[in-house]
Amino acid sequence: MSVGAEVRAWRPGLTGIVEVLHAHFPSHAYPSHTHDAWTVLIVDEGAVRYDLDHREHGLAQAQVSLLPPHVPHDGRSVRPEGFRKRVLYLAPDRLGDHLIGAAVDQPEYVDPLLRHRIHQLHGVLQDGLEDLEAQSRLTLIEERLGQHLRRHVIAPPDRYDAGVASRLRDVLDSRVADGITLEDAAKLVHAHPAHLVRAFSREYGMPPHRYLTGRRVDLARRYLLDGYPAAEVASLAGFYDQSHLTRHFRKLLGVTPSSFLRR
């Protein structure tokens, strides 16, 4: 490791992501190597130059890089001050071996929406509390990466489907405290996960995870008004702990649970 390097890596509890890496390398240069996963890379400071399959590429802050599994690549900073990056390593079956050649031909994308979605997912994974939100964001990221790999930057519009959205809402309403994974919800509703997120967001003006959080806050309010202590309410309403409840309660209502009850 180079002098002054900062690295944080962890395996989130999210199916499809095998590792998350946040790193600052003032001087480190990667030798040629391969991964067994898809590497989704964004640069937050500096710029990176790398060779992929013996072809030179560059990555700046406005871009997203997708490096395919099993293909040799290296990496070094363009600037003397080094670079700061965030990486998602996706399981190889999330995009498929048949798309590796397309990624070799075009591994960088100038796509502000994709980059923003990746940034948002890193924030959710760093928190580690919002399972459904992380699943939803990963699904939309993978879909958009697939569009780029198939040389279609803009996805074809979805058929309007209020029925899918309504069925998902019923599922969420029936499992407010227990929650449900996006994959399991898609099986129950008989829709692709990405289509499920878009249809619900279009119909109700918010993504499924935000709707579920709102329902949980509503449930927490009722338990609080019934006299349950906040620590117990957090578990009853589907939050991880009291601080998790307090954060979302304050975000939605502008006050903490204790202030909500104060006369």
Results as ranks from 00 to 15, higher is better:
residue 145 L to G: 05
residue 146 G to D: 13
residue 146 G to V: 15
residue 147 Q to M: 08
residue 147 Q to I: 06
residue 148 H to T: 04
residue 149 L to W: 00
residue 149 L to M: 06
residue 150 R to K: 14
residue 150 R to V: 07
residue 151 R to F: 12
residue 152 H to W: 15
residue 153 V to D: 13
residue 154 I to W: 14
residue 156 P to Q: 06
residue 156 P to W: 10
residue 156 P to N: 14
residue 156 P to S: 14
residue 156 P to Y: 12
residue 157 P to K: 10
residue 157 P to Y: 10
residue 159 R to T: 02
residue 160 Y to V: 12
residue 160 Y to T: 10
residue 161 D to S: 14
residue 161 D to G: 13
residue 164 V to T: 11
residue 164 V to M: 11
residue 164 V to I: 15
residue 164 V to D: 08
residue 165 A to K: 08
residue 165 A to D: 07
residue 166 S to K: 06
residue 166 S to M: 11
residue 167 R to L: 08
residue 167 R to E: 10
residue 168 L to V: 11
residue 168 L to G: 00
residue 169 R to I: 04
residue 170 D to L: 12
residue 170 D to H: 13
residue 171 V to T: 05
residue 173 D to I: 09
residue 173 D to M: 01
residue 173 D to S: 10
residue 175 R to E: 06
residue 176 V to G: 00
residue 176 V to I: 01
residue 176 V to Y: 03
residue 177 A to T: 08
residue 177 A to K: 07
residue 177 A to C: 09
residue 178 D to Y: 03
residue 179 G to C: 06
residue 181 T to H: 03
residue 182 L to W: 04
residue 183 E to T: 06
residue 183 E to G: 06
residue 184 D to M: 00
residue 184 D to Y: 03
residue 185 A to Q: 11
residue 186 A to E: 07
residue 188 L to M: 08
residue 188 L to K: 07
residue 190 H to A: 11
residue 190 H to N: 12
residue 190 H to M: 11
residue 191 A to S: 12
residue 191 A to V: 00
residue 191 A to W: 01
residue 192 H to E: 02
residue 193 P to E: 11
residue 194 A to P: 12
residue 195 H to E: 14
residue 195 H to K: 13
residue 195 H to I: 12
residue 196 L to E: 03
residue 196 L to D: 01
residue 199 A to V: 14
residue 199 A to L: 12
residue 200 F to R: 02
residue 200 F to Q: 00
residue 201 S to N: 10
residue 202 R to F: 03
residue 202 R to K: 14
residue 203 E to T: 13
residue 204 Y to R: 08
residue 207 P to Y: 02
residue 207 P to W: 09
residue 208 P to A: 03
residue 208 P to I: 07
residue 209 H to D: 13
residue 211 Y to T: 02
residue 212 L to G: 09
residue 212 L to P: 04
residue 212 L to D: 07
residue 213 T to A: 11
residue 215 R to W: 13
residue 216 R to G: 10
residue 216 R to Y: 02
residue 216 R to F: 04
residue 217 V to Y: 09
